[in-house]
Amino acid sequence: MTLLATSLLIWTGSLLAGFLGALTGLGGGVVVVPLLALAFGVDLRYAIGASLLSVIATSSGAAAAYVRDGLSNVRVGMFLEIATTLGALAGAFVAAHVPTSAVAVVFGLVLLGAAGLSLRHPASQAGPPRPADPIAIALRMDGSYPGHDGRIEYHVRNVPAGFGLMAVAGGLSGLLGIGSGALKVIAMDDVMRLPFKVSSTTSNFMIGVTAAASAGVYLARGYLDPVLAAPVVLGVLPGALLGAWLLPRLGGRVLRLVFAGVIAVLAVEMLYQGATGRL
């Protein structure tokens, strides 16, 4: 196939991947990497590099829209970015020293977990009131966000555990070229007990910074191929923005099930191809 035809196909596929990623809330990366590796036979390192760039584009594009609503918690985000960027650096270094088949197997496992998570109900914020974390108080992390009747106050809990989970999320992001958004939301939602609206926008905000930390390593190692990255970035970005815009207008349970099924099939395929050494 010629470069023109391949680029157009990859652009179309990336548009769909970004769309699907936004609708499932998993992000474009988890769909783009299997798409490039399985359908186009792209080497996993190039696929991961291109995906990581599309993750940065999506994060910045979406954050530009959210951040002005005063929903994200800049302090929490900035503090946790110490963990995610360190993790991302470590992940990118590990990626350079393990065979791609092993990376494919880890990718498959993470993808399976993500498919399961996408079906989970948002954590209920109820439950017995717990004391606020003294670390959170010292770091002035407690905040408020705009609700129906004025601003709603909230407290931040369990900072050390959230910080640890964020380092793992960063490591997976650097190793696999994905945003690790689902894991970031869990860390802030379930562990640190931020309100769902705050955790999802803050997580999205952090994804770009996390991915930038591994992008430098990828660039120096020659993983970022411009001819591949161009159609991927230009496809995933509008696809993701469209999906994010459409999400509140659809939001059906059946739809989520279908998408989770698609992700699970991709996961199994990645596991199989990785385990048999084909990727």
């Binding site: 196939m1 010629t2 470069l3 023109l4 391949t6 680029s7 186009f40 036979g41 792209v42 080497d43 390192r45 190039y46 791609t100 660039l219 120096a220 190692r221 020659g222 993983y223 970022l224 191929d225 411009p226 001819v227 591949l228 161009a230 159609p231 230009l234």
Partner: peptide
């Protein structure tokens, strides 16, 4: 950049199956 590159290389046969790493000029 994509338009400029495609204008000159539309008929190329891309080969990304094998990892070679980008040339140094595209890494720094």
């Amino acid at each position: 950049g994509a338009v400029v590159h495609l204008a000159g290389h539309a008929g190329d046969r891309p080969d990304l199956h094998v990892f070679r790493g980008e040339p140094l000029a595209l890494r720094e």
